[in-house]
Design a protein around this nucleic acid. Structure first.
Lengths: 355, 355
DNA sequence: TTGTAAGCGTTATCAT
DNA sequence: ATGATAACGCTTACAA
């Protein structure tokens, strides 16, 4: 087989100019019916199935592709209900714009030549959960002049952000817990950074948190409970909450009466750990989450949590990209979480005085 | 601001040829350190951040992007645990190959100019759950000479397929149910086609099923229970199973003693419907699923089901694409499901004779 | 190690 | 309604 036919071949065989043939396929200008028929017939005969998208996108300066960069391994992202809900809204918003979604990882393995924000043929980028490490790649994208929108992250003041009132919502949960009489509190946090460290956090480590969501929620909680014990999880998974919960409930004398988890999945794990330790929720220990998703395996419990508008966040990001691509300005949007009191928090138990 | 700097501008300003500048960025040939430094410095000065991916991909003939086409709306796909598991394996396999994943819908709305298999700058395509409608688009891709792999679908004999032994596994479940003494059976199927019709199916409709998974599993079941009542669901969701279950359990006189659902989610819905109708599972009615995923809200039940290797399926598809891109042949693979007996199937209840 | 030159396949512009 | 032509920005033989 010879080389693939091009639009020039088709044009020549049909006895028209390349521009006419091009127009037949793009429909961007009127063409005589007879001419179109002929071109199409010739194209079919040559096995030409339409313009090469690579060439078209070079010429047009648009590829019709928007990158969605995730901080973590894609496998992890798909497991996170909040991310999928956000993606859902996002793909919706982008579809209206006529763009496809290219899934990208923030940090492709060094050796791999997988596409990155800097090397992929994209028209714009949406970063989900952008933290420090992403900054320099981001710089490359921005200096290419491509629109960038950030969901739950910080990429500088001139990059539109779609974010939550994480601090306020976390504080609201904390207030609720304090109003119930709790004084011995533990916080189970989302990851501090890419390092996936697990366990009790020192003040220094807390000061060095690079993940904006983690630090905003933590600040909200600590504003109410400055002395809370802080334990970080390596990712937002039930199993991670389980591990953290086991740590917290290991010593009956020092265990908290309430645990504030930074995600519903973590909270579900903490609850499981509590039950494993023979503690009743909420009679012996209260547990609160964050996100407002449906969690598997919680049984009859309804989590006390902050419900976030995840789909709307994604859709708003898509809309912002569309606007920027159209040359307009796009503003940051701050979404509001809704506090939901469930059945997993209750009055603080009365401590037995040490006789 | 003037037009964006190109590699030619950089080369000129650095006093080298374009090819040298190109090599500095691609690293495909040795360059004197001094030269590289100079080029890089000049590039930085001009705000040049590397080759335009669109131009590079035209020249190279590769874009580094593989399309993953889903039949349904992305939102729906993400809700399906099997699809996410498959995507998980797939993105893994493709990452090794160094390709990005472009999420595509099979059937973009007519008005939208969203990219399609025919118009996106892709190097290959993976179709998940390809049914009839996708065929013609597919034709365009194949005649562009791009590798195509299909997961759970049929795109012609020369397109490698990653599939399950759906028929055998379904038959195995049916045998299990029959061995328990059941004779009054209902099947709750996955969608027949894109139409999302719901309810009792006529033989004609059954004959016209275009979704391969649905028809393969159904044939397996009918091979054991030729007279089973067949009810189709509009999609693989717990709520759909619930709707189907309500239909089945509406009339105590005609209700089946066992329901074979084509997915675990549907089975979970059927179980919920049974409990809603005051029926105990499995004492009054047995329910079996398909997939082997963890389902939310099943309580203490362990579903009797066929466990499929979803992640492996995806990864194998990624590997197949890699092989085809390397010019090798890729063969179809048929994965085997594992029957798992749970607690949702039991002996058929003894019918009260009508006195 | 660096330079020359020839495209990659398309589409926008401007005539005709 | 159609045609001629010039980019779009880069890469890679091949030559020096």
């Amino acid at each position: 087989m010879r080389r693939r036919a091009t639009i020039a071949d088709v044009a020549r065989a049909a006895g028209v100019s390349p521009s006419t043939a091009s127009v037949v396929f793009s429909g961007k200008a009127p063409v005589a019916d007879a001419t179109r028929e002929r071109v199409l017939a010739v194209a079919a005969g040559l096995g030409y199935t339409g313009p090469d998208p690579r060439a078209a996108s070079l010429r047009r300066g648009r590829s019709g592709i928007v990158a969605v960069a995730l901080e973590e391994h894609l496998r992890t992202a798909f497991l996170d209900p909040i991310k999928t809900a956000t993606m859902d809204g996002l793909t919706d918003g982008l579809a209206e714009l006529g763009a496809g979604v290219l899934l990208l990882r923030d940090d492709p393995e060094a050796g791999s030549d997988a596409p990155t924000l800097a090397t992929a043929p994209i028209d714009a980028a949406v970063l989900i959960g952008c933290s420090g490490r992403m900054r320099e790649t981001l710089q490359a994208v921005r200096s290419r002049g491509l629109p960038v929108v950030v969901i739950e992250g910080d990429a500088g003041d001139d990059v539109p952000r779609m974010e939550l009132d994480n601090g306020e919502a976390a504080a609201q949960i904390a207030h609720h817990v304090r109003a119930l009489g709790h004084r011995d509190i533990a916080v189970v946090t989302l990851p501090f950074d890419g390092a996936k460290v697990r366990g009790d956090a020192t003040p220094e480590r807390i000061a060095s948190i690079t993940t904006p969501v983690t630090s905003a929620r933590l600040e909200g909680t600590l504003s109410v409970f400055p002395d809370a014990r802080v334990v970080s999880a390596a990712s937002s998974l039930i199993d991670e909450g389980l591990i953290a919960g086991r740590m917290l409930f290991a010593d009956p004398l020092t265990r908290p009466t309430a645990v504030i988890a930074q995600s519903d999945l973590l909270a579900a794990g903490v609850i499981r750990a509590a039950e494993e330790a023979g503690l009743r929720v909420p009679e012996d220990v209260s547990v609160a989450g964050f996100d407002g998703i449906a969690v598997d395996g919680l049984g009859e419990h309804v989590l006390t949590t902050a419900v976030q508008p995840a789909v709307e966040k994604g859709r708003a990001a898509g809309d912002a990209v569309a606007r920027m691509l159209a040359g307009e300005q796009a503003a940051s949007i701050r979404f509001t979480c809704t506090f939901r009191e469930g059945t997993t928090t209750g009055p603080a138990p009365v401590r037995q005085p040490l006789s």
